[in-house]
């Protein structure tokens, strides 16, 4: 299992499409930095193929005033959760 990191908003960059196409069936995706803008509907719908394996970083949501407005399909993790995700993955691939 690979963990993919995405730090771009789906509203401004198409890189999320390549990231999604590169993901295997059990890979996970963590939204960080400006990537967390995609954690809200309707942008989150772009990630429907990976619901259940889709995470967003709490501190990046909080600093942007978005905590509590996340789509319910997204699992929010803190920094420790981020580290845990990297422990569980064989490798980590960053998309930027």
């Amino acid at each position: 299992m690979l963990l993919h990191l995405l730090n771009r908003s789906a509203a401004s960059s198409h890189v999320y499409r390549d990231a999604l196409r590169a993901m295997a069936e059990d890979d996970c995706l963590l939204l960080t930095e400006d990537g967390v803008y995609s954690a809200l509907m309707p942008l989150a719908e772009h990630f429907s193929a990976v619901y259940g394996r889709l995470f967003a970083l709490r501190e990046d949501l909080a600093s942007r005033g978005l905590e509590g407005r996340c789509a319910e399909q997204i699992v929010i993790v803190d920094m420790e959760g981020f580290v845990q995700l990297t422990e569980d993955a064989d490798r980590v691939v960053s998309w930027f």
């Binding site: 990191l5 730090n7 990297t86 422990e87 490798r91 980590v92 691939v93 960053s94 930027f96």
Partner: peptide, 8 residues
């Protein structure tokens, strides 16, 4: 064991 990339 792990390499994590942080890019702009």
């Amino acid at each position: 064991d792990r390499l994590i990339t942080f890019s702009p």
